[in-house]
Structures are given as structure tokens and as C-alpha cells.
Design a protein around this nucleic acid. Structure first.
Lengths: 230, 230
DNA sequence: GCTCCATGTGAATCTATATTCACTATATTC
DNA sequence: GAATATAGTGAATATAGATTCACATGGAGC
């Protein structure tokens, strides 16, 4: 018989294992038997800690949110530079590579108007909202470009991460997530950074025509605010 | 008894129905019973045409691959400009996701499970490979920056799409995937484009120090070639 | 050491789903 | 019309997975 563990410790362990199984095999690949195996228990032991599979899932999703929030707080403590914050946040997400794909997997696994999907979506929006806030901070400081709406930039930043992680799983670990995200960040950071020298130079060089384009861009950004109705 | 249909017609019908069920209910929601119902048959009739569920899925995915290839060919016919090609390809992907909502569900929902997974991964690699080829073309023409490896840039380009699709799906169409991808493309295109004017200007302005930085960047990019072992 | 509680086990139960198999029926050809 | 091939049907079967339930056991407190 396995050594007994404090209920709280075990519950956390089970939730964590669920995340990893979902990340690896998808929601459909999560069985109570497989989960129990992952933890080192028999399937019925799980019902000692959770009323059923549904409850395991809820706990799993909850735990990923908590981690994401802890990461966000840690990053904001470590540095006040918005670009630095984004980079660190992304790299912390990379460290969670064994867990974070569970969210998209849950989203795509569910049928129409599934509750879990809505929940996962809300969580995702929370994360992107926090990213967007950092970006807005940078925009306020004149460090990050203002012509593109912050939420859009947040989605783009997330886009540095998501495909790399998916490829990592699809290739069974044969894709260097860290390197890809770092490269992507370098390209993206330059693209969103306000470089005062080159900015002036471009304006100066292109004169009236260039100036007009800049103005239109600023407007377009404003118009393209996503989901104002949300 | 249902009217009999020619085997080929029926097989196509079944594969299409599978995509529809997956779009609605996800992979986990695809049962032989439900599929048969969708087609207007009894479940065992499906085995007249496919050896099992696995084979139905393969056929369904095959039709996605064909569509993707048709898109690629169309885009390459329409324009020879690499940046234009990428943009068009991305936008066709957006359209395709709308047309075949099952596609992202197949790619994102499931982890390893043998042949199907290998097929999905192959699809993805095919798409990224084609993107990378276009990027290499652009690099050869001196239109796209060379300091970052083409496959990495391809993954980044995909990164404009993937999160937008996830959000689109999670929001049940409430997130404007088209607008997001367009915005992302604008930011990314500037970042990867070789702009000869500003390149000269920057070099001119920053003199020795700026010049050195450019050189170092080129080297780092070369070193970070992904998966040379692939 | 004993008691009690919480956690782990193993067997049983139930259900949904994939599939097989024997039979049926349609459509084509001669 | 008969024969044949192919596609459709309905019942049966096997299995995977979720869960319950009675028993077992570890660990804490007295």
C-alpha cells in the first residue's frame, strides 16, 4: 500500500497530474485510471479526495490560474520595466510547458456552450488582460508603441509562446521552445519598442507623406479595439 | 432501408460528416453512432467503407490537407512577392478555419495517440515548411531579414494565427480573428522586412556602436538554427 | 497499546462506445 | 428473371472508463 499523504498535499498532486495528462494527451486522454497511475494510486483512491472527474478538472484549472498569477506577481516584483516584465512572464510560461497546453486543449475539446470552455476562456482572458496592462504601462511611459491596441499586442506576445509549446508536444519534446520564444521575443520587442532615434529619423525623412501615414495608423489602432461588447 | 450509394460517394460523405461532428462536438464527441446518424445510416454501415474509426479520421484529415495545399498553390499563383504570399496564406488559413472549424480542434485538442497524432503533426509541419520556404525565398531576394532562421520566422508567423484562432473559438466567434491577424501581420511584416532606407540611416546615425550591434545580431541568428537534426 | 479517523485497495457494477457477424436488400449485369 | 456484388441493418459482443462499496491500513492522539 502506498504511503498515505495529507489530504491537501494529495489533492494538489492529483490536480497537477491531471494538468500534465491533459497537456500531453488532451482532455479525452484523461482517465481516472491513467491519472491514478500518474499519481501512484489506484483509481478509486481519487474519490477519496475529489467527488468525481469533474471536480478534478476544476481543481486542475484552478491551479494553473494560481500559478499564472504567482508568476505575474513575481515578475512585477522583480522589475518595473514593462518590456522586461513581458519577457520574464513569457519565460516563466515556458517553464510551465508541461501544464499550459491544457488550457487550449480544454477549450477545443468541449462542445458548444460547454461550461469548462467558458471557464477556460475567462482564465485565458485574465492572463491576456494582465499582459495588456503591462503593455499599457509601457505605452503610458512612451516605451511601447501606441498605434496598436494593447490587447492586440498582448495576443501577439502570447503568439510567441503558444505555437512553440504546441510544436514541443507534437514533436514529443523535439522542439526547442526556449530558443524559439527567445528569438521571437527579440523580433517582437524591436517591433513594439518605441525607438526615439529611428522614429524621428523616419518622420524627418518621409516628410508629409510619412507623417500622414503615422496619423492614420494611430486612428486605425483605436478603431480596432477588440470586443468592446464583451 | 436507406438508398444505397456508390462507395466513393459514401466515403466522402462520411468523412465530411466526421468533420462536421468534430466541429460541433470535438474529437471526443465523435462517436460512430453519432456519425452514422449524421449520414443517415446505422453505425455498422460505416464499417462497410472504413475499417474503423481511425480510418474515418484519417480520411477526414486528408481532406484538410488537400485544402491547405490548394490554398498554398493558389497563393503562389497569385503573387510572387514573398511577403504578399505569407499574408495571403495567413488570411486563407483564417478563412479555412471558418470553413472547416474541425481543423483547429484536431490540431489543438489532442496529444499523442499514434497515427492520428503523427498525421496532425505532419500537417502542421507541412504548413510551417511551406511558410519557411516562402521566407527563404524572401531572404534570398534580400526582402526578408536573414539574421533569423526561416523556420523560426515561420513559427512566429504561425504565432500570429494560432492564438487568434484559439480566442475566436473560445469566444464562439466573438473575437475578431481577421482583424487580429491583420494587425499582427502589420507589426510582424515591418519587423522582418529588410528596409534598405532605414537600414542605411540607422547605420549612418549610430556609427561604430550601432554597426557592431548589427553584426552581433546576425551571428546569434545563425547559431540558433532549430532542429538541424530533424 | 488502543481507538479512531482518514486515506488507500480491490472487486463489483454500470454505461457508453467500437466493432463483429449473420442476415437483408438494392442495383447491375447477363 | 437469376445471379452476383456491394451496401445497409439489427442484434450481439467486448472493452474501456467512471464510480460505488466494503474492507484494509497507516498515522495521530490519548
Amino acid at each position: 500500500m502506498t504511503q498515505k499523504l495529507d489530504g491537501r498535499v494529495r489533492r494538489r498532486q492529483i490536480a497537477q497530474a491531471a494538468l500534465q495528462v491533459i497537456a500531453q494527451r488532451g482532455l479525452g486522454g484523461l482517465s481516472m485510471a491513467g491519472l491514478a497511475r500518474q499519481v501512484g494510486l489506484v483509481p478509486s483512491a481519487i474519490y477519496r479526495h475529489y467527488r468525481g472527474k469533474e471536480e478534478v478538472l476544476s481543481a486542475a484549472m484552478e491551479s494553473i490560474v494560481q500559478k499564472a498569477q504567482a508568476n505575474l506577481q513575481a515578475v512585477c516584483r522583480q522589475t518595473s520595466d514593462p518590456l522586461e516584465r513581458i519577457e520574464r512572464l513569457l519565460m516563466r510560461q515556458v517553464a510551465m510547458v508541461r501544464e499550459i497546453p491544457a488550457m487550449p486543449r480544454i477549450i477545443f475539446a468541449e462542445g458548444p456552450s460547454g461550461q469548462r470552455k467558458a471557464q477556460a476562456y475567462g482564465m485565458l482572458r485574465g492572463f491576456l488582460g494582465a499582459l495588456a496592462d503591462i503593455i499599457r504601462q509601457g505605452q503610458g511611459q512612451g516605451v511601447i508603441r501606441k498605434d496598436v491596441e494593447a490587447f492586440s499586442l498582448a495576443v501577439m506576445a502570447w503568439g510567441l509562446l503558444a505555437p512553440a509549446v504546441i510544436l514541443w508536444y507534437a514533436s514529443e519534446g523535439d522542439f526547442d521552445v526556449t530558443a524559439q520564444v527567445q528569438r521571437g521575443w527579440k523580433v517582437f520587442a524591436v517591433a513594439i519598442k518605441v525607438n526615439h532615434n529611428s522614429h524621428k529619423s523616419a518622420g524627418h525623412r518621409l516628410q508629409a507623406s510619412g507623417y500622414r501615414l503615422q496619423k492614420n495608423k494611430a486612428k486605425a489602432g483605436g478603431e480596432l479595439t477588440p470586443e468592446s461588447k464583451t
